[in-house]
Design a protein around this nucleic acid. Structure first.
Lengths: 178, 178
DNA sequence: CAGTATCCTGTCCGATACTG
DNA sequence: CAGTATCGGACAGGATACTG
């Protein structure tokens, strides 16, 4: 395949990007999460060339994020629906949305998340379901899982050392940036 | 620029992807979050061609995710450190990690997130900081923010209709139409 | 060590034309 | 409406050589 280094990588982030790294992928998933299912809905919404859309849809199906379903026999018509795997990308898109709102919306956000019942604006935060505490670089760290290879363990140890020294040496100027 | 449709888009997800859509970007940020700062640390960790690394680092600096800082005068040496904007990508990477663990680790995850104090495995979930409830497609929806254009409002209304019909046809029990 | 300078290939992506 | 076929351009990404 294209990037040999990744096939050897067990890094789940790299593996995830293998699926949704291409530019349109996440936007298609975004629209699918919004309920779009048909070819021309996607095309109009994304303003994407039809051949590109075909390619991306095919790739997403091969990755198991979308399923093609026939909804009409005559004429034969298909719709593209999210699998569970695709739906599970929702938190990724939500955090991406929050990040974009925070950093690329000088005149205020144009899209916000709201509670369906109360209508109140929601503020998405990542927390540890076990302890309820907010996930942070200080309070959490990465550890090797059951399937970690020897190389991965080394890598994580290396990271840990890097982070330790980084944290102690650069803590000072963290606070002086606005 | 390359994708004219996106410059017109106010979608914060699209704007975010404008920054980190390229393939290496998020992996570099991942390593930077782990404490890597120097050119050759990145290069060894990512196994990336040096010219590509230069290009990506430059792009990330132009997007305001990284800063170049001189840490030695003679010989002149620079390090690449995350800005606040770059550090704020951490939740995105964490959710991506969780997604990868869930869907692309048949023999179990190779990397997990753990509580630094207790060592307990953490389970990242996205919740609404206001209500404390978990963010879900059923309990939350997207609404136009203060800077939403007329087109964006239309778009969100369109999404809402799509989602309603989708929800009622596929999961009738979720939502009684009022 | 920390990159820069070239050159090359793959492919992402767009535009257009066409089909059942 | 729901795509497929074909062509071409831009650029991400790779390999290699070279520099202070």
């Amino acid at each position: 395949m294209r990037r040999k280094s990744l096939n050897e990588t067990q890094c789940p982030i790299a593996r995830s990007l293998e699926c949704v790294g291409e530019w349109w992928s996440l936007l298609i998933i975004r629209d699918a999460l919004h309920g779009l299912t048909r070819f021309d809905e996607f095309q109009k919404s994304l303003d994407i060339a039809p051949n590109m859309l075909t390619r991306r849809l095919t790739a997403l199906m091969e990755s198991g994020l979308l399923e093609k379903r026939q909804y009409s026999v005559r004429p034969p018509r298909y719709e593209y629906v999210l699998t569970q795997r695709g739906r599970d990308l929702s938190p990724v898109l939500t955090t991406l949305l929050a990040w974009g709102n925070k950093h690329f919306a000088p005149e205020g956000p144009s899209i916000l998340l709201a509670d369906s019942q109360t209508g109140e604006i929601a503020e998405p935060v990542l927390v540890d379901k076990v302890t309820g505490r907010e996930i942070s670089a200080q309070a959490h760290r990465l550890v090797p899982g059951p399937a970690a290879s020897e190389g991965m363990i080394q890598r994580l140890q290396h990271y840990q050392r890097q982070w330790d020294s980084h944290a102690t040496t650069t803590d000072a100027h963290y606070h002086e940036e606005s």
